[in-house]
């Protein structure tokens, strides 16, 4: 198992960096090219959500992202330090009249639609979003 850990200040500009790092490591781990866009988007969503939560609750705390090559899976865990509750199910109001604060739930809905294995663990000390995708079993271990 090879692991890369990244912590970054809760600034929107850093989300792009996190996306790029995750995509590069996913490629090296052997995630299929066709899935890389999904990895990029899902990691971006998780990091965006974390950054927004930190800006509201704890702007000085960094967001943490862990990327692992684990037995044929590429696993990403994004952990924040902002208190959170169970995400409300995203229900589309067909006339588009949902309120802006409900858009936060949209990010988790997008992640659930992109990763085939997702775990969202909210808590008073922060939320952890773990997601994974298939990778080649003999993916490049020396990340």
């Amino acid at each position: 198992m090879a692991t890369v850990e990244l912590t970054f200040s809760a600034l929107p500009a850093h989300v792009r960096t996190a996306r790029l790092v995750a995509t590069a490591i996913a490629r090296r781990t052997g995630v299929a090219e066709a899935i890389l866009d999904e990895v990029r988007l899902a990691v971006g969503e998780a990091c965006s959500r974390a950054v927004e939560a930190h800006r509201l609750h704890c702007p000085g705390e960094p967001v943490r992202i862990e990327l692992r090559d684990d037995a044929g899976r590429f696993e990403v865990t994004v952990t924040d330090a902002a208190p959170s509750e169970e995400p409300k199910p995203y229900v589309l109001d067909v006339d588009g009249a949902f309120m802006p604060d409900e858009m936060a739930e949209l990010g988790v809905a997008v992640i659930a639609g992109l990763a085939d294995d997702v775990e969202v663990v909210p808590g008073p000390k922060g939320m952890r979003i773990r997601m994974s995708w298939p990778a080649s079993v003999d993916g490049i271990a020396a990340i």
């Binding site: 988007l41 971006g44 969503e45 588009g96 949902f98 990010g107």
Partner: peptide, 19 residues
């Protein structure tokens, strides 16, 4: 090249305004 849910939120917000 890339659109995430924040971008979707902006488009939905724009739609609400014009409607």
């Amino acid at each position: 090249d890339f659109l995430d849910s924040t971008g979707l939120g902006v488009l939905v917000g724009g739609l609400k305004r014009v409607r």
